[in-house]
């Protein structure tokens, strides 16, 4: 029972990070109908930028903000410079392009920052919190991860549901031609969508780096788990992405804990296949149906 408790807490923190990655993928999917396979590599790159700042004496929070801002810029630049020109090409072209960005960033990072495995600091203690004499396997940093991802989600929700800007972003995403006729700067909205998504990705990168250690491909696995999570949630629904990401966190934690950590990736694939067989449009498919 105690083991179950430990694995659940572990699943919750990791699930939040997968949820942030899933959210990044869903935001870009909604804006431009592209699965951005470079999302993980972009987050890796911005985390390296944070490390670069830290090594030059920047305080942790400054490096943290620098990483998020560079995520914003990187997302905007990738959309505006690379994705836009192939926007009207067949969908496969854009997929290949994002894979190209992935390979490019993973080749560029060791050239710029060195290829060896590096440790990355956490904002708070990663030692479990003490409750009386009992040490709970949940650290202050875990709590911070949880809160910061929740905060990001709340801000995005507020933006999309409560502001005119968010309304225009939704309008541009779902019918660009009509939006354009109504005076919406569609291109700008899509760029902003990519930029915001990359902030979510960058946050995931920063939060998971202390436990995974930093090396050029350290986000690949997070991307796969986040992608699986977003598929679970139906790929089109931000709340679905969060639920899917969390489900992945719990499931993988139980698989790793009870069956052995070697089976985690296999577990992710089994879950993906099972869900695609039983509910092909995702666990929260009723949402998608209502929208259509």
């Amino acid at each position: 029972m105690q083991r179950f408790f430990v694995l659940t807490l572990n699943g919750l923190t990791e699930g939040m990070i997968y949820a942030a990655m899933a959210l990044a993928l869903v935001l870009i999917w909604r804006a431009t109908r592209v699965v951005n396979f470079a999302q993980g590599a972009m987050a890796m790159f911005t985390t390296y930028i944070a490390l670069f700042a830290l090594e030059r004496g920047a305080p942790y929070w400054l490096a943290f903000i620098v990483a998020l801002l560079s995520g914003f810029l990187l997302g905007a630049v990738v959309e505006r410079v690379l994705v836009r020109p192939v926007e009207s090409a067949p969908p496969l072209n854009v997929v290949i392009l994002t894979l190209g960005v992935l390979l490019m960033l993973e080749a560029l990072a060791p050239m710029l920052f060195g290829g060896q495995i590096r440790s990355f600091p956490a904002a708070f203690s990663i030692v479990g919190i003490r409750v009386g004499s009992l040490q709970v396997p949940f650290s202050a940093f875990d709590l911070f991860s949880l809160v910061s991802v929740l905060l990001l989600m709340a801000l995005l929700l507020l933006l999309f549901q409560r502001t005119d800007l968010g309304l225009r972003m939704r309008a541009a995403a779902f019918n660009a031609e009509v939006a354009r006729l109504l005076g919406v700067r569609v291109g700008r909205m899509l760029t902003l969508g990519w930029a915001l998504a990359s902030v979510a990705g960058a946050l995931a990168g920063l939060l998971i780096a202390p436990s995974l250690l930093l090396y050029p491909t350290y986000m690949d696995q997070v991307l796969v788990f986040g992608f699986t999570g977003s598929i679970l949630g139906g790929l089109d629904s931000p709340p679905g992405a969060v639920v899917g990401g969390l489900a992945m966190g719990f499931a993988l934690s139980y698989v790793g804990g009870y069956l052995g950590s070697d089976l985690e990736t296999v577990g992710a694939l089994v879950i993906l296949i099972a869900v695609l067989m039983v509910r092909p449009s995702g666990l929260l498919a009723w949402r998608a149906q209502r929208v259509v």
């Binding site: 309304l167 779902f174 031609e177 109504l182 919406v184």
Partner: peptide, 14 residues
Amino acid sequence: GLWPGLTVLENVLV
């Protein structure tokens, strides 16, 4: 060309 996922009010606001 109405947005199916936006309410009538939101559609008009755009």
